[in-house]
C-alpha cells in the first residue's frame, strides 16, 4: 500500500473512532463502568465497526493503526479493555468476544482488566514470551484500579493452553506498557483540553482565568508535557519493528508517567474545587492517567530496565545508545 493510502486509512480510523467514542462515552457511561457495569452497547459498536480486529492478522492494518486507535480510546476514556482485546487478537488469533490480558502468576492471572466481562484471558509475564490462554474464564477476585477500572483475578485451570507470543522485537509485556503510554498520552490530551476550556470560561477578579499569567504558565507547562508524552509514544510505535523497540517503549512509558504526574496535578489546580467534584468529568481522565502509571511496569521499573541497558554498553557508548547508532 502506498504511503498516501496508508495515511488515508489511518485518518479514517482516527476520525471514525473519535465519532464513535465521542457519541457514546459520556459521564453516565463512565460512572456506570466504574460501578463495574460493562459497556455492552459500546462494545457492540466497536465490533460492528470492525475496530476489534484492527491490527490482527489479515485485517490490512498493523501496529500503527492499532496504537492510533488506543490513543483515541484514551482521549475518550473509553471504558473497554480495548488495548488488551486488540493485542490478544493480534497475537493469538481473532476472537469476536472481549479478550483481556493480565499478569500470569502460576494458578492465577492477576490485574486482569474487565476479567469479569471477558471470554478469553491471556496471562503474560514481564520476562517471558510464553503465555497461558484461558477460555473458560472464572473470576476468583474482583478488584479495581485507582480509576475504578475493573482489575480482576482469574483462575488458570489445569491444562490451560500454553502459547508462545512471537514478536520480532520487544515482548508482549512491553507492548502492553506501550499501550498504557499511548492511552495516557490520549487521556492527558483531554485533560489539557478540559483545563484550557475551563480557563477560558471561568472568570475571577473580573477576567477569565486564562488572562492570569500564573495560569498561562501552568497551562504552557502542561501543554509541553503532553506534547512530550505524545511524541515519545508515537516514536515508540514507529520503532516497534526495529531492534530499538525495548528502549523506545521504556522511554515512552517513563515519559508518559512523568507527564501524568505533572499534568494531573496542575490541571486539577486550574479547575479548582469544581474539578474535584465527582460530578465533573476531569477526574475520569486524571485518575486513569495516574492508574496507568502503575500498570505493566511503573516508571521506576522501566527506568531501571532502560538504565541497565545503558550501563551494560558503558559510559563511552551512552550517546550511541541514545541515538540508536
Amino acid at each position: 500500500m502506498s504511503d498516501n493510502n496508508m495515511n488515508e486509512q489511518l485518518s479514517i480510523i482516527i476520525d471514525t473512532a473519535n465519532r464513535l467514542f465521542g457519541d457514546s462515552v459520556d459521564k453516565g457511561l463512565l460512572d456506570a463502568a466504574e460501578r463495574g457495569e460493562f459497556a455492552q452497547s459500546l462494545w457492540a459498536s466497536v465490533v460492528a465497526t470492525g475496530f476489534h480486529a484492527v491490527g490482527s492478522k489479515d485485517s490490512g492494518t498493523g501496529v500503527v493503526e492499532l496504537f492510533a486507535l488506543l490513543d483515541v480510546a484514551g482521549r475518550h476514556a473509553a471504558p473497554l479493555p480495548l488495548a488488551e482485546t486488540l493485542l490478544a487478537n493480534a497475537w493469538v488469533g481473532l476472537s469476536e468476544g472481549v479478550s483481556s490480558i493480565g499478569l500470569w502468576e502460576g494458578q492465577r492471572i492477576t490485574d486482569v482488566p474487565w476479567g469479569r466481562s471477558s471470554t478469553r484471558v491471556i496471562g503474560i509475564r514481564p520476562d517471558s514470551a510464553e503465555c497461558v490462554i484461558v477460555e473458560q474464564v472464572e473470576v476468583i477476585e474482583r478488584s479495581a484500579n485507582l480509576a475504578g477500572e475493573p482489575r480482576d483475578v482469574v483462575r488458570v485451570p489445569e491444562g490451560a493452553s500454553r502459547h508462545t507470543i512471537r514478536l520480532n522485537h520487544g515482548n508482549a509485556w512491553s507492548q502492553l506498557a506501550l499501550a498504557r503510554a499511548v492511552q495516557t498520552a490520549g487521556a492527558l490530551s483531554t485533560v489539557l483540553d478540559i483545563a484550557l476550556q475551563y480557563a477560558g470560561e471561568r472568570e475571577q477578579f473580573g477576567r477569565s482565568l486564562s488572562k492570569f499569567q500564573a495560569i498561562q504558565h501552568s497551562l504552557a507547562v502542561q501543554a509541553a508535557e503532553v506534547a512530550a508524552a505524545r511524541r515519545a509514544a508515537t516514536g515508540a510505535v514507529d520503532a516497534l519493528d526495529t531492534p530499538r523497540a525495548a528502549a523506545e517503549i521504556a522511554a515512552a512509558k517513563i515519559r508518559a508517567g512523568d507527564a501524568a504526574t505533572m499534568v494531573g496535578e496542575a490541571a486539577h489546580q486550574v479547575l479548582g474545587a469544581i474539578g474535584y467534584t465527582h460530578e465533573h468529568r476531569l477526574h475520569h481522565f486524571t485518575r486513569r492517567a495516574w492508574a496507568w502509571r502503575d500498570e505493566f511496569g511503573n516508571e521506576f521499573d522501566w527506568q531501571r530496565s532502560l538504565g541497565a541497558m545503558i550501563a551494560g554498553v558503558g559510559a563511552d557508548h551512552v550517546w550511541s545508545f541514545v541515538t540508536g547508532r
Binding site: A251, R304, A311
Partner: peptide
C-alpha cells in the same frame, strides 16, 4: 554511567533510565 559501572544499584540504574528516556524524547521533539 562510568562511575556506577556495568552493574549499577537499582536506584542508580533508574537515574540513568530516566535521564535517557527524557533525552530520547527531547531528541525526537
Amino acid at each position: 554511567v562510568r562511575l556506577v559501572g556495568p552493574n549499577p544499584l537499582p536506584h542508580e540504574a533508574a537515574v540513568i533510565g530516566r535521564a535517557a528516556g527524557h533525552l530520547m524524547t527531547l531528541r525526537k521533539m
